[in-house]
Design a protein around this nucleic acid. Structure first.
Lengths: 131, 131
DNA sequence: CTAAAGTTTGACACTGGTGTCAATGTCAAG
DNA sequence: CTTGACATTGACACCAGTGTCAAACTTTAG
């Protein structure tokens, strides 16, 4: 698929998709005419990238995270000690963000509940398994 | 306490503390000499603010969130319908961020685990209650 | 063939969050 | 009183993430 479709399916602007590529977060094949071409896998990838960036993870780190993810998926023994440490460090940062957001989410919920606005609570009810 | 101490205790630079105040996320009393003075409560507040901002919540929204939180705590019946809707909207955004971060956290963990770097997993083991 | 829609690269520009510096004021210790 | 640490405000500046526009090319529809 071409960039326009990818953008439509992910809700991420073409501008950003190109930006992410430029930041090495994405790779795209090129059609003979020079157009970028994407596969299904890219849809997921782009969503993840956008999500993480939105969640305050700088692109530089998003790359490290997703790369590690891929490596893990392909069961690679890529553990250059130094990368592992960087990841471990980043892990605590991520956890802190999660905690902070979770607290806020919970208080928003309580608030809405307390003010008879339960009606607005149609969303989100997935199980978040921790540890 | 004065701004320097607050900064030291929260790990947030004085620059940012003033910035947050300017963005109406914080209020500070002034000593007769003009110095800002803070209470224990501010320590928590500043941490929360910084955490949320770091987690990608724009200051404008951080204000809404924390205000609602306070209102709830004081059991105020402040539910101007319109604010409630804004919160509900923001709630789904927060949840999305949490989900995205959670997935990343989990894959970082798996990765470290898979690569014999469990050693680096000393941190984070708190229970996150959902719903 | 032509017009419209989509793509490419590249540039300009804006916003939000931060750092840093400068000039001035306050306070506590020597 | 002087010095040094800390405060105040305000400005300048930077980076990251985005929007938007322009000029040129490709592809699709009529």
């Amino acid at each position: 698929m071409k960039i326009g479709e990818l953008a439509a399916r992910t809700g991420v602007s073409t501008r950003l998709i190109r930006y992410y590529e430029q930041q090495d977060l994405l790779e795209a094949d090129r059609a003979p005419n020079g157009y970028r071409t994407y596969t299904e896998a890219h849809v997921e990838r782009v969503s993840r990238v956008a999500g993480l960036v939105q969640a305050g993870i700088p692109t530089r780190l998003v790359k490290v995270l997703l790369d590690a993810e891929l490596a893990a998926a392909r069961d690679e023994p890529t553990c250059p000690r130094e990368v592992a440490e960087q990841l471990a460090t980043e892990l605590v940062g991520v956890q802190e963000r999660i905690d902070c957001l979770t607290r806020s989410r919970d208080s928003i919920r309580s608030f809405l509940k307390a003010t008879q606005n339960e009606v607005l609570l149609r969303e989100a009810a997935e199980p978040v398994l921790t540890s």
